[in-house]
Design a binder for these strands. Structure first.
Lengths: 261, 261
DNA sequence: CTCCAAGTTCCATTATTCGGAACATTGTTT
DNA sequence: AAACAATGTTCCGAATAATGGAACTTGGAG
């Protein structure tokens, strides 16, 4: 069993999931021809795959022939979230960190070349808290993404870097592969990552990696704040606390999930 | 394409999803032998299916060989939720209903013989709101479940009734198939359903169906309240409001998603 | 009404999954 | 510590399900 990054679209299951991914990734309503273009599969094949997904409740079709993900996925996700031992172990540490710094804390897991938000602690339960959980962001322009990336073994990192598309989000976004490599090198040396308004203008953060490379597991935690309220110097001052929290989570994982993680 | 209830476990995809379902449904950590027993498949076959799921990020294995659902599912679910047109259309009506009755409102969709909670409106954002979304409950002992069931065409209802396991949750739970049929008949006649502490002691609710049978879509909305604060008479008095809200949602769906749903 | 694009079905071919049995690993007992 | 039992993993010929080209149907625009 290969434990690296999913060889997206291999095997019958992989192709089916690729369809779901195409629907989830596109933020416009996808119709049959859109999926056909996005996945380049023969019409007959794609049609059958879609039919199977619909039969399983993983995909739904609207009257205008556009597709949306099925609500059956919600059940799985609710379970994935509440059953996640990693999340459970991390939670108290996130709260402790939040108590210390008073800004929003994020917990995210690297998934291919994206990070998935697993949990979040903030002072005021802002509107629709759950809207954040499960959301994904690119790994090359987020603190947690870069932090997680810094602890991936070299060969595996290569595989993933090749798959990144360096889209520009703000004027500070790293859009060059070589600059990204240098940034990762720098983060590895320092032990923490900074996101200098690279994903969203006006928002910056400091992050540290939480990982179990022998299980192919890479994650990160971060303190996020608006630029107008918290200066970069303050974030850098918190870097030690973030690292300490990240290390405490890893220790806890080793203790509770067995030494080999 | 069959548009009825998913013929669970048919085809390669169905079997793979059945594995996920087994992990999600069991609330204890499942190991290989547990899944083997739950799914009765040959060892070699099950092992390969699990491997595929892990490769796709849909399943994770802990160091003690127990499995949990993969966080990749979170991404899909986040999208399924925020992309659900039904949820979007229903939301303002749920808020309006909540403004009127002042108790917790639920929106749920029937999925096989379970209901999946899609949304919820309550006065005080209680702890971890998102923990509720995506959770499932049996259809035979919840207001939304019974309401949704009451509008399923007879033959389709038969298929599903056969799959229900009438587990007792409280002293009021309907545990007999014939009693359930009578109850559904009664609900169909009245147009609304009551859950008289059938799922959780001390909690009762009134619900009404929201459905598009020609699309195989069955859902429901409910007003839920603790028995100590809200008497059954009050719930019944709200039945009209609940039905009105449900009907308004259906009208909106017809208007916004096309007449045939 | 006609035409063109989008969506759906069909079926012989081909690739994948299936599953029994052998092998390996883990952990339990004497 | 050795033997044993239970659990987990791999292999490969046979069986089955997925593939994809082409024909067919539907539906929307002019």
């Amino acid at each position: 069993m290969e434990q690296g990054q999913p060889e997206s679209g291999t095997g019958t299951l992989g192709k089916a999931i690729a369809v779901l991914d195409a629907v989830a990734t596109a933020n416009r309503p996808m119709r049959f021809k859109d999926l056909l273009a996005a996945l380049d599969q023969p019409r007959g094949t794609l049609h059958r795959q879609i039919s199977n997904l619909i039969d399983e409740g993983l995909l739904q079709v609207n009257s205008d022939h556009s597709y949306e993900l099925g609500i059956r996925l919600l059940k799985f996700a609710a379970n994935a979230w509440s059953g996640s031992r990693f999340r459970e172990i991390a939670e108290p540490h996130l709260r402790a960190l939040h108590a210390k710094v008073g800004e929003t804390i994020h917990l995210s897991v690297l998934q291919g070349v994206e990070v998935v938000y697993l949990d979040k602690v903030e002072s005021r339960q802002s509107v629709r808290m759950h809207s954040q959980i499960g959301n994904t962001s690119p790994c090359f322009c987020t603190g947690v993404g870069k932090a997680a990336f810094s602890v991936i073994p070299a060969d595996e990192a290569e595989n993933r870097i090749r798959k990144i598309v360096f889209k520009r989000y703000t004027e500070h976004t790293i859009t060059d592969e070589h600059a990204f490599r240098r940034e990762i090198e720098d983060i590895r040396a320092k032990g923490y990552a900074l996101d200098r308004e690279e994903h969203e203008a006006g928002i910056h953060c400091v992050a540290a990696p939480v990982a179990a490379p022998d299980r192919g597991f890479y994650a990160g935690i971060s303190v996020t704040a608006p630029v107008y309220r918290v200066p970069m110097e303050q974030l850098e001052a918190w870097a030690g606390d973030v690292r300490a929290a990240a290390d405490a989570i890893m220790e806890d994982m080793n203790a509770k999930l067995g030494p080999r993680g």
